[in-house]
Design a protein around this nucleic acid. Structure first.
Length: 206
DNA sequence: CGTTCGATGCACT
DNA sequence: GTGCATCGAACGT
């Protein structure tokens, strides 16, 4: 079942946790790809210095201020598209960044798309666990780009669905790849899952 | 193990 | 002109 809009109209940390185990599905012209969400991060409000809305509304971050249940896609470092599910309520900028998937359908198509990345052209295939490990990798494998920005996640072609997949233990830790807002443990991932982009938690080594 | 750095585009200042 | 919510290879220790 496709998650309804009301799923997203809740506190962002709750949505983040509940997205683990749900399935991101892209029914694209060149085929269907999907994967179980295993790692996410929350970005919450203008008071969150790492949130794109930290400096107030702009053209780019407008989707964050829009209705929950839509996707906010943006281009990062000039070559990676990052996928967020907008949460909370209209007028309050917040979203959940999807950082990693465990691939389900369309593995071969994912491989073909991944090989189009500049540094991967002509290189051998990666193993399945790495296809959607990391936010840049998963958007490439799923064929998600700016063309899908602001689309509703409760309508095709890009949906998030509950397929009854159970996740085991879940861990919270600091978000990665940012310089400000590190004090918040707003990254959430499935423990011991090989598709999670970073395994280490706050306390790294025993 | 660790750190550095190139690829690459564009919103923002 | 600056600085990214990245990736992966190339180095150094």
């Amino acid at each position: 079942m496709t998650l309804p809009q009301r799923f997203y109209a809740r506190p962002t940390l709750e949505v983040a946790r509940d997205l683990l185990g749900k399935v991101l599905v892209h029914r694209a012209p060149d085929g269907v790809t999907s994967g179980v969400i295993v790692e996410v991060e929350a970005y919450i409000g203008e008071d969150d210095p790492a949130c794109h809305a930290a400096a107030g509304p702009t053209t780019r971050n407008a989707p964050l201020y829009g209705e929950p249940g839509r996707v906010y896609v943006y281009l990062n470092y000039g070559l990676h598209h990052l996928v967020n599910a907008v949460t909370e309520r209209e007028g309050f900028p917040a979203a959940v960044l999807i950082r990693a998937l465990e691939p389900m359908e369309g593995l071969e198509l994912m491989q073909r798309r991944r090989r189009r990345m500049p540094w991967r052209t002509g290189k051998p295939a990666v193993d399945a666990a790495q296809l959607c490990r990391g936010p840049g990798n998963l958007s490439a494998a799923m064929g998600i780009d700016l063309g899908l920005n602001t689309r509703a996640l409760f309508r095709r072609p890009l949906t998030i669905e509950d397929r009854g997949v159970g996740v085991g233990a879940v861990t919270w830790g600091p978000r990665v790849g940012i310089t400000r807002g590190v004090e918040h443990a707003w990254r959430c991932w499935v423990e011991a899952n090989p598709c999670v982009s970073r395994v280490s938690s706050p306390a790294a080594r025993p």
